[in-house]
Design a protein around this nucleic acid. Structure first.
Lengths: 258, 258
DNA sequence: AACTGTGAAGATCTTCACAGCA
DNA sequence: TGCTGTGAAGATCTTCACAGTT
């Protein structure tokens, strides 16, 4: 082993740090709202407040994209929306398949934000033969047997797994074998994928456990006063301070349909 | 904002770094699986593989909890399960309320992992009068009017918001006013909360956008033939390298019911 | 005067590599 | 011998603070 190999230059995709990439969608959402209100320009201070981060961080983040602002003025909303969209690859259409149409899968299929921003639900797939043909969110559910064909016919490269934990890895393997290279996993399992495939996971129970940790911490500190919730002073929210940064930075969360 | 206040000593809750806290649930899940198979001990190497992280990181994480392992042997599964559960505050019962019972809220209510690990759904709340009384996952939905009373009667400190984006902040304000100090937000909005309240967010569209960014990157690199970029080497999956760490570390994602 | 862009300092997090215990 | 626990080095990320621009 050893091999001083290029030990994963990772993150440095090409200059934009991963932490910044994770915040671009946040900025984009805030900018889109401003755009809809026809606001022409914003200062880093205003936009930062709307996105829930601090302005220094926002400016540094934008500096990785280039110099899209005007000193003394701020940023042109429309222009920034375009630049960030392009950077995120949202100027093109990404066909997505959702596998596992239980409560969660249905919720995802119905999610409006999907179509609105570069993503298109190419197909809903479920292993239950009884579901086949039934429309969910206006899209007919197709059987797992067709998975490979669907991926190929639609050139799908992003797959969403909303199956029970036990089915996740097999489904993942098939998706990858069929050509999917990015997976969003809602099943509470660690997926193993070959090199070159990205996996992000969303896990409800993990998020709750992280909250429980901080909650327990608060309870302990409060003791000083007596009990009541939220003393006058700050029991302090460990991480995530009040209005500032949301979603500390943990990594995961998971959900799983019935 | 501003206020040169105690500039958030944040993370250092009391020694355990936030990044470690975010991984404890992962270890716990892997350990629970081992426990069910009656495996008595595990090495950091084995457990790390099961949790999808590298062993050095796992050992360092555990070192913050104390010295619970045995050199030359490994960790006692049952003992570790207990220690991590205690650290995360899962040895006590956390009543949780879910507000917004659409497709997503129903999916969350049906999520099995809820009850199994220290969390108990105290109530399901929805603004639609027509939903009141209807059982979802065996629990009758109650109207938003009762929110405050429910929170107080059950001593709820953790709330899950699965409402449409527009209703999220108002609901959040009421939850906080009633005593909730930890919120898991599935609505695609940045919530503003007073100091001392923790907010974590889960946002589907953000996760997809992050995947799209990397996906676009991959596509671009493959083209390498054309312009001068990336030799002939691997197309490489930007971040999240193959089987290693899952879920890079972004911060957020969002889902929203119909 | 107002605000961006950014070098540098600080804070966190990760990985190495090896001393030390069972 | 086998594997944990951890100081130290590295890599990232955040925040400061101010030069530079309109």
């Amino acid at each position: 082993m050893a091999t001083g190999r290029t030990h994963r230059p990772a993150t440095r995709s090409r200059g934009i740090p991963e932490a910044t990439v994770a915040r671009l969608p946040l900025y984009l959402r805030a900018l889109t709202a401003l755009s809809e209100r026809s606001v022409p320009t914003v200062s880093s201070e205003e936009l930062a407040a709307a996105a829930g981060v601090n302005s220094a961080k926002l400016r540094k983040d934008f500096s990785y994209l280039g110099s899209y602002g005007t000193r003394g003025v701020g940023y042109d909303v429309e222009y920034l929306v375009y630049q960030i969209s392009r950077e995120l690859g949202l100027t093109q259409d990404w066909p997505v398949v959702i596998v596992g149409i239980g409560n969660l899968g249905a919720a995802l299929a119905n999610y409006g934000g999907f179509a609105s921003r570069g993503f298109r639900v190419a197909a809903l797939i479920d292993a239950d033969p009884a579901m086949a043909g039934k429309p969910v969110a206006g899209i007919p559910v197709r059987h797992t047997d067709e998975l490979e064909k669907i991926i190929e016919d639609n050139g799908v490269s992003i797959g969403v797994i909303a199956t029970p934990a036990g089915a996740a890895q097999p489904v993942c393997d098939r998706l990858v074998a069929a050509g999917v290279t990015s997976i969003l996993n809602f099943a509470p399992t660690v997926l193993t994928v070959p090199d070159g495939v990205d996996v992000r996971k969303v896990d409800l129970s993990i998020e709750l456990q992280i909250l429980a940790f901080h909650e327990q911490r608060k309870a302990g500190e409060e003791t000083a006063a007596g009990d009541g919730a939220v003393p006058a002073a700050t029991p302090r929210g460990t991480a995530a301070d009040g209005s500032a940064d949301q979603g500390p930075d943990g990594d995961v969360p998971a959900v799983m349909p019935a």
